[in-house]
Design a protein around this nucleic acid. Sequence first.
DNA 1: ATGCATGAGGT
DNA 2: CCTCATGCATA
Length: 700
Amino acid sequence: MENKQHILTNDGSDSSNTSTSCKNSNICSNRLRTIVTSELNENSKKSRLYFGNECKTKQINNSHKLNSLITTDKSYQTSFESAEINDSCLNPMVTNHENFNLYNNRLSTTPLRKSSSSSPQQPNSQKMLDNEITTKTSILEWHSTPESDMLDNIKADNSNNEQLLLNYKSQSANQSSDSMYNNSSFVNNTSKNNDKNSAYEKLINQTDDHSPPLSYSSQSTENLNEDSVRTNHQHILHSQPHPIEKSHSNFDNECMWKENDQHVDSLSFDNEINYIKNHWNSNHNLLMNKLRFHSNITTPTTTLPSATNNSSNELNFNEHTSSFDTMIPCISHNFLTNFTRTSYDTVQSNFTQENLYGLSSSNLNTNGNMVGGFANTNIFNIDNNSHPASVPSNTHNKLEDEYDCAEHCLDTYNHSHQQHRHHHSHNQFMTINNCGNCEYNLNFPNDVTLAAGTTTNNFKTSLNCYLLPPINGFNGSTVDNNHSQLTDGIVAPNFKTRLNSSSGYSSQNFTHPTILGCNHSNSSIYRHPVELDYNPRELEAFSELFKQRRIKLGVTQADVGKALGNLKISGVGSLSQSTICRFESLTLSHNNMVALKPVLQAWLEEAEAEASSRLNHPNIYDLDEERRRKRTSITDSEKRSLEAFFSIQPRPSSEKIAQIAEKLNLKKNVVRVWFCNQRQKQKRMKFSTLGMLHHSATRT
DNA sequence: ATGCATGAGGT
DNA sequence: CCTCATGCATA
């Protein structure tokens, strides 16, 4: 019952082929989309779905999982629709989508590079840590500190960083290998030398060079300095408030923007920031949220390859890491994820493990690869005695144990914080919690997504809590224009329940009830009107775990895709290796990710359940010897031309396409499809550059 | 992992 | 002719 048929020759005569029946996968595409769309559409009476190769037709309503998916989506829509649009407040019309776009834009403009060029003697993790701890301001501080003080702090940070930069520059003045500054694409040649602005430019660019995406917390905050913003956006700030208008769109419930009287699909980040800045006093939070999704105004902290111990400006890290409930200076998601990545990379690069900040060899599996995610205790050495690395893994109930302990720790934490929740001063973003009675450390990030329960062959991590940006902001829905402070965090529902409900594999959003003592009243932090499950970082965490578990099961991506067909989820058929791969590497659209997640999660759970008794179905693939489709290949030069065209006009008219095709001596259809794909590619979400580093490091 | 492509559903 | 979800073919 396998498929594969359409044999398109590449002689240009292909195009429209017959598709009258729904026998094959091609015809069954759009299935998830179909589900969601049709279900979301109140008027839609569609109940037939084409799913996968089998092309089943099912009642949508028969599917529990999909129903829940849809329900969630609806609530997302609802919350979105009901969000108040109020310029004096925040910008509730910032969709998750937009954040994705911001994020994606960031990724596309500042691709993460392998750090090999910058500092071979020092692992990325160290550098990133350096970055983090050179920051003294934090989101929380921003919200709980008088603005004037905050600005002082920011300025201090900035000058501090500038100083570090200068140090670094003088240090490396004669190191010609420092090509970063010479990379024309990163240097604003027109800016006057050595002035603050250019220093910033460089700093930022340099930092971006090996900083992961999604800069966060402290990083964002310190950028809330108007000067720094201006510095990086001179091109838009020279003018008066930008003629930006915001209006409703009944299309996809998305916000419609007008720039210079012209409707635009989405406001450029720069202009949006500018827009927000016009409401500076009331929009701290939004701006902050915005900023941290964007590359250009992120982390002007320095990246000093080897300035660890010789800078007087450096924070003494240890002084922050002494006891129970120790506050850790802002550690970004970037840091965590990149640390993990770096670990992979580093292991492969023959760095000694000791270089990795206390990374225990227990973290390595039998292949010497980093496994089990990331435990802060491994890095920060909070409590050596309770280091979970020494705990041998049990054969069962590991997760349960961890959850129990998590609950326990949480309780302990809560009690402990009754008294001194107001005492935390700064540099806090994540707390390390060890109840002292058990071997687990719980790391409670602030409003983050927890990715729980990673266990490995011979090593049981603590509950791994990926520190993820609070895309949902903090609790609250209105803005206190004058006193921006944190409210209590969103109180987490029963911790254990939530974890269990996800079978331990998917992460759950969880906000510590006593977020770092910032529980003042009546404030309000920007909160995205989105369902938690749609937190991109949540998806990221899931795909991450998914991949890990899949690999552990010894299942290939193709296997997974095929197995989905056997999963009797209504309407779900097989998927290709491509799709699974794209899911794991987050190169699907957001909606697509969201739609696939429950399906893949279902598979994962099932596969885990029968892991022991599972036999590998050596699927019989009789390779039909039919002619195979020939893939057009576009040469580099052609591609460059196309890209050039694309940058000018992403959606050329038919005539234009014909023109281009003629010019490049390509078939018109090829050009058209290229543009389609290019647009799609541009939209596609890439949560992180993780993917890139990822496969290179983990594939076997 | 990705480039080029298809086809359903829409505008 | 577009967008979006996906897939085959291939680097």
